[in-house]
Deep mutational scan, measured.
Amino acid sequence: MAAGGDHGSPDSYRSPLASRYASPEMCFVFSDRYKFRTWRQLWLWLAEAEQTLGLPITDEQIQEMKSNLENIDFKMAAEEEKRLRHDVMAHVHTFGHCCPKAAGIIHLGATSCYVGDNTDLIILRNALDLLLPKLARVISRLADFAKERASLPTLGFTHFQPAQLTTVGKRCCLWIQDLCMDLQNLKRVRDDLRFRGVKGTTGTQASFLQLFEGDDHKVEQLDKMVTEKAGFKRAFIITGQTYTRKVDIEVLSVLASLGASVHKICTDIRLLANLKEMEEPFEKQQIGSSAMPYKRNPMRSERCCSLARHLMTLVMDPLQTASVQWFERTLDDSANRRICLAEAFLTADTILNTLQNISEGLVVYPKVIERRIRQELPFMATENIIMAMVKAGGSRQDCHEKIRVLSQQAASVVKQEGGDNDLIERIQVDAYFSPIHSQLDHLLDPSSFTGRASQQVQRFLEEEVYPLLKPYESVMKVKAELCL
């Protein structure tokens, strides 16, 4: 049975990233139509530049190519590739079939990587351009969430054990800070992308030097003109047959890092959902379990974690691919890159769409948070109580021993009897502590235990987050809708 299948058929496997999760716009960027249309555009740009620099290419040939950029006979191309065992030459023939007058000058002087690699770089750039505003929107939604809850005390956790208090907004800023680093890295790697350009079979530009009869300047002009037509500021000066596969490492490393950030955020949300302090959106008709109707599973956060793990592992592909590119190139890269580049971007696209949807509907339960604080705060307040007693004339050592005994009794009630923490009640009825009984409410005010959390939130948002989001103001209103 021949390899390949009808990918629109229910009898043929289709990647869930495309069929179930990723956005239509990201799927289109990695589609065959987008790819092969870009090949034709690159052939047109090459012909236009070659004509401008004096090669015998007519206006009629150029116009014929322009008129057929979208006229792609995919069936013919597939048949040609089956016959020739070469995808680029299959599309040269297919393009030439609908451009008979231009057929002889299509791909003039070029090698397969002229269309293959340059198209990949265009796709990487455009895919990054799709991700950047999506990530900015996630940051914006979380920034709104953090600002609104900047002063809401909550129990902090280290080692997932109760620690000092923080605020809900401050905790959210930990998430935002990681995503801001990801946004900066995505922008950097996007701006650092260079075009492969017009380089020939081993990167020496020998074929173009021959076409222009040894004119170095025209060869350099050709490279520059096509690079500018493709919208790049610069091209690699040095290439082998391909652009260095280190570029793929750079791009997928940034995406993998984004995956790590999203995994951490969504894990926190899942843990908070278990504590009943916070939940992701839950639709009115949504079913959490087929057997347990009360369940409210954090399905979206779980999906993000599941896909983020996949995204983090994909960076190993370009690392290994770059390491086995012998001399000017081997074909070890080809099949692998067809999979890992598309999957990385479709996965990143999915987790950003999902995280935006989550961040637009996060639900906080202040009463649950308050109750958990009441359970733990008495123990945390013991040092403040000791200091207040010393100020009232008591002995630190005597007070410490009193607190120690009462704390152990209260802990026994919590752990052995399943009761509430009654340390404060014990202190309130103990005559030894009568000098500070009137101060206990103040000493137990949760806001006095959150330090500068709310001020940190305000400063972080104003100095770091809002300036970073400013270039994306025009796209901030787009909502994230999930079908599944």
Rank of each mutant, 00 (worst) to 15 (best):
G4L: 12
D11T: 13
R14V: 08
S15K: 05
A18P: 10
S23I: 14
F28G: 03
F28I: 04
Y34I: 01
K35E: 06
F36L: 08
Q41I: 07
A47P: 13
E50M: 09
G54N: 01
L55K: 10
N68D: 02
I72H: 09
F74A: 00
K75Y: 13
R83W: 02
R85V: 11
R85W: 12
M89T: 01
F95M: 12
P100E: 08
G109Q: 03
T119F: 05
D120S: 06
I122M: 02
L124M: 08
N126V: 02
K134F: 08
L135C: 00
I139T: 06
R149T: 06
F157Q: 00
T166C: 06
T167R: 04
Q177E: 08
Q177H: 11
M181E: 05
L186I: 10
R188N: 11
D192M: 10
K199L: 02
G200R: 08
Q210Y: 03
D215I: 11
L222R: 05
K229T: 07
A235T: 11
A235Y: 07
I237T: 07
I249Y: 13
V254I: 10
L255Y: 07
S257H: 01
L258A: 13
L258F: 15
G259K: 03
V262G: 11
H263K: 10
I265W: 08
L272C: 15
L275E: 12
M278P: 06
E280H: 08
F282T: 12
K284F: 10
K284L: 09
R296A: 11
R300Y: 05
R303L: 13
R309M: 13
M312V: 14
V315F: 03
L319G: 10
R337K: 05
L341D: 06
E343N: 13
A348Q: 08
A348T: 03
T354I: 00
L355F: 02
E360F: 02
L362S: 07
I369Q: 02
I385R: 04
I385F: 09
I386F: 13
M389T: 00
V390N: 08
Q397L: 13
C399A: 09
Q409W: 06
V414Y: 02
Q416T: 12
D422R: 02
I427E: 15
S434D: 11
H442E: 11
L443N: 11
R452I: 13
L468K: 12
L469E: 15
K470I: 08
E473A: 05
V478C: 15
